[in-house]
Every structure is written in structure tokens, then in C-alpha cells.
Design a protein around this nucleic acid. Structure first.
Lengths: 124, 124
DNA sequence: ATCATCTACAACCATTTGGTTGTAGGTTAG
DNA sequence: CTAACCTACAACCAAATGGTTGTAGATGAT
């Protein structure tokens, strides 16, 4: 059973981390390979420190993990975390789906009630 | 066919809009009902203008639409937009899934090749 | 041992964000 | 018509963001 126990702040961090093209690109790269922060920094038109900050944001959001190998720090994105973000969106969507479901159920109950007058409508 | 033609900035706006608990709550509320900005503002411990700004952020991100009714502006969240955000995440995830699929396929091909040298590997 | 590389982190700066208050314009109710 | 209500928007402010440079500590290569 997967517990969806993300606090509001965790979801904030998650989506905020995703709200930057550089960070999304880092995620894509580090899903394929493990890359050191320096190698990553080579890929972008900004300083090493800037990339380091982006990596820190991703790490605090739980989207990547770092692992030391010698003097370098290897970055790897955590696919489970991306999945977690999707779950947060699913939760949002489910409210809408819930409304549709409720409507369908009410409609169905109406139809049943017409066929069978003894059935009381149940609260959703 | 759904064209996933989101520019980087659009995705930025999308995730940035989602990276705030108040805005996510607005989305949830306006999936159920259509609410005026004033009614929404009643629900939060902040000024009307602040809520108005949150609504503006959601609107620029394409997550909600506003519709005038008399003097009020009714807010409704666009479920398709939430779905669009999920697609953006799917794209991120697909890189990882692609890697796994490729590995499984290679593994499968190896196994099939051992059992039956004439069979070409089929997609799972 | 020395030098180059990789990382961490502080200090600084411009811009954006998230909040405030205040003002002005439309729309509805009485 | 007037008063109440809803919205739009500007001006302002503190804090966070996204970038910079600079310094210092580990680690690896020669």
C-alpha cells in the first residue's frame, strides 16, 4: 500500500522544483545517466554554483538523490518522486472525477428509484 | 489526438501555479462548484486582492477560466489543464520508463533468442 | 608534494513573489 | 438615485528566487 502522506509544504517544494526548465532538464538527464554536478554544469549557460543551487532545490524536493563517488557527487533522479508528483495531481483530478461519479450515481439512483420505489437515495 | 504543445514557459507557469497550497485549494473548490472571487476570498485568511492575484496566476497558467455573471466573476477550474500538467510529468517519467522498457526488451530478446533463435523480440 | 578538480558555502545583487492598502469603475438592490 | 457589492489595478513592502563571484576544504592524478 502506497501512503500518499505528502504535507502541503512537500507538495509546494515538489511543484516549485518542477517549475523551472533547467531543473526539469536536469531531471531528464539524470534519469538516463548518473551525472556529477560538474558534468551537469557543463551543459548549461550558467555558473557551477547556479547549477549547484538547482540541484539543491531538486534534492530538497526529494526529486533527486546524490551519491558520492570519490571527489564527485553523482546525481540521480528518483522516478518514485516524479510518480509522487503525479499522485498529487491525481488527487486534484479526483475531485473532478468524484463530481462526475456522484452525478452518474445520482442519475443511476433516479433510474433505479423509478423502477423500484422502495429504495431510498443514499448520501454520497 | 492530443497535441502536447506546451512551451517551456507554459510548463513553468503550470507548475509554478501548482506550487502554492492556497492555489491548489482554489483549484479543488472550483472543480466542485463555480465560485465568485469574493466567495473564494471569504475562505482564506488574506485580503481580497491577494486571492485575486492567486486567481490571476491560475488563469495565466490556463488552470482556470473566468466567466462573468452580472457583477461577479465566476471561477471554474479546467480539468483538461490538470490533465495537461500530468502529461508534462508523463513526459519526464517516460524517459525512465523508456530505459526500463529497453532493458526488459533486451533481456527478453536474450531469453527468447536462447529458446528460439528465429523469433524476433516483440514489445511487451 | 603539488597541482588540478570537484564540491560546499557565504556574500552580494536584481528581479519576482506574495502579501498589504487604497482608489476607481461597473452592476445590482432598495 | 443612492447605497452596497464585486472587480480591476496601482503602489508599496518584505521575503524568496535565481543568478553572480569568491573562498576554502577534499580528493585524485602526476
Amino acid at each position: 500500500m502506497v501512503v500518499d502522506d505528502l504535507t502541503d509544504e512537500a507538495v509546494d517544494r515538489l511543484f516549485h522544483a518542477l517549475a523551472d526548465a533547467t531543473r526539469r532538464d536536469i531531471l531528464r538527464r539524470c534519469v538516463r545517466d548518473e551525472l556529477s554536478v560538474s558534468r551537469l554544469a557543463d551543459a548549461y549557460p550558467m555558473s557551477f554554483a547556479a547549477v549547484q543551487k538547482h540541484v539543491a532545490v531538486l534534492e530538497k524536493a526529494g526529486l533527486i538523490t546524490k551519491q558520492r563517488r570519490g571527489r564527485e557527487q553523482l546525481v540521480r533522479t528518483d522516478p518514485e518522486a516524479v510518480r509522487r508528483a503525479r499522485l498529487a495531481l491525481d488527487e486534484l483530478e479526483s475531485a473532478w472525477r468524484g463530481r462526475v461519479d456522484r452525478m452518474s450515481r445520482l442519475l443511476a439512483e433516479d433510474l433505479i428509484a423509478e423502477e423500484n420505489p422502495t429504495t431510498k437515495g443514499q448520501e454520497p
